[in-house]
Design a protein around this nucleic acid. Structure first.
Lengths: 100, 100
DNA sequence: CAGGTTGTTTTCCATAGCGGAAACTATTGC
DNA sequence: GCAATAGTTTCCGCTATGGAAAACAACCTG
């Protein structure tokens, strides 16, 4: 019942990346980069962390194969959902500890 | 309009601490400690960060003044609210970037 | 009020994470 | 081939984190 926060997803930048991908399907890396305010290297590393975890898939699609496209894997979507559930659980504070 | 995540509040342990305090009013430190799974020193430091930011107030109340009680300050409540708003904004992904 | 006990904080140390700049790789278009 | 573009990796410094142990504070008992 106590869904846990996912330490891979939780950090702010990665949370935003996941949220974008969950909402947006397959997005170009540059689109994500423009949305977040991160240097190319920093973004690359955050995305790599999500890829390493198996949460995000990277592909070079289209005619210009320099460009990378990102999408959530099934596992990533599941982990994201679990993370969001955990956030809700915490924020809604369903479990208020008894003070007696 | 774009509420930002608060870097003081965002880290998992501190988010939980704030959520507990917002929901629970004034709580004993030990109660918080039992709820989170942290060593005394680690908890103390996380709480100290919130106190330094002006988000949490610490008092020694009651007959046994060894015990520390925690509560949110007005500023803390406001910051927490802003943080949660930002989370909702991100998660609800109202702003799906256009892919065209 | 000395001495032990409990609750919390601080110090110390080791580790992990983060971000930017610059170097590097791969690909494109001329 | 060569310049430009897209991304990644390396390097480096800095901050955050957490546990153990020492220190500190407050209580309790005889």
């Amino acid at each position: 019942m106590t869904a846990d926060l996912d330490p891979i997803i939780h950090p702010a930048h990665r949370l935003r990346i996941c949220a974008m991908l969950v909402a947006g399907g397959t997005l170009e890396l540059s689109v994500v980069k423009d949305h977040l305010d991160l240097s190319p290297s920093a973004l690359s590393k955050q995305v790599a962390a999500l890829v390493d975890a198996g949460y995000v898939k990277q592909e070079r699609l289209g005619s210009d194969t320099r460009r990378v496209w990102l999408s959530m894997t099934r596992q990533g979507r599941k982990a994201y959902q679990g993370h969001v559930d955990a956030l809700r659980e915490i924020v809604n504070a369903t479990t208020v500890p008894s003070t007696d």
